[in-house]
Design a protein around this nucleic acid. Sequence first.
DNA 1: TGGCGGATTCACT
DNA 2: GTGAATCCGCCAA
Length: 211
Amino acid sequence: MSPHIYTLTALQAAPLLLGQHVVRRTEDGEIRCRIVETESYGGSEDKGSHAYGGRRTARTEVMFRTGGVAYVYLIYGMYNCVNVVTAAKDDPHAVLIRAVEPLTGYDEGQMAAYRGITVKKPSDLSGGPGKLCRALRIDKSLNGCPLNDPAGPLWLEQGDLPDALDIVQAPRINISYAEEYAQLPWRFYLRGNPYVSVLDRQAQPFRLPKV
DNA sequence: TGGCGGATTCACT
DNA sequence: GTGAATCCGCCAA
């Protein structure tokens, strides 16, 4: 995948990451999936971001790195969430991966095995940040992992052309504490995709800016 | 050092 | 729709 995307702000990168492929390698083999839902957590002004106000702690330190690494954290004491860090060093931006879909039947089978539950509908498998981390066996040991290294445990590959995708945008999920920032339409997903975690009736079509 | 709450999920009503 | 699970990061004291 073009490294250019890692230099962008989280808000610019979040829609562009839709359709890109995530590859996870474990001792069991490689799993490939496609990103179908993202959220932008960008800059120190965003009250929804862990790095709001430039808060720089052991946990958020990864967000301040040069774009192109993973930010993985534990939420509610039991689920991991994975982000793509973007933008320049010392400017904390991250794109939360909220849903993915397996590329092949093999990938689907591996993810279901890691999930360890009965999957009744597609979004049970990997529609939600905690679910997809479990389905891909992503935990804090991958925090800071470079995302451009096909020899590593986790990386991104070129997927679909973003201008061929039907993208919508809507407010982010579960961040009421973010006050006015909670309403901003900084969640992006592929319209009609069955792996998306939460549908929004008010979702608006998103058009990529002309380059 | 203590207390609080969360970028979630699942089981239950 | 509601509530529990579960624990670490954060900040105030």
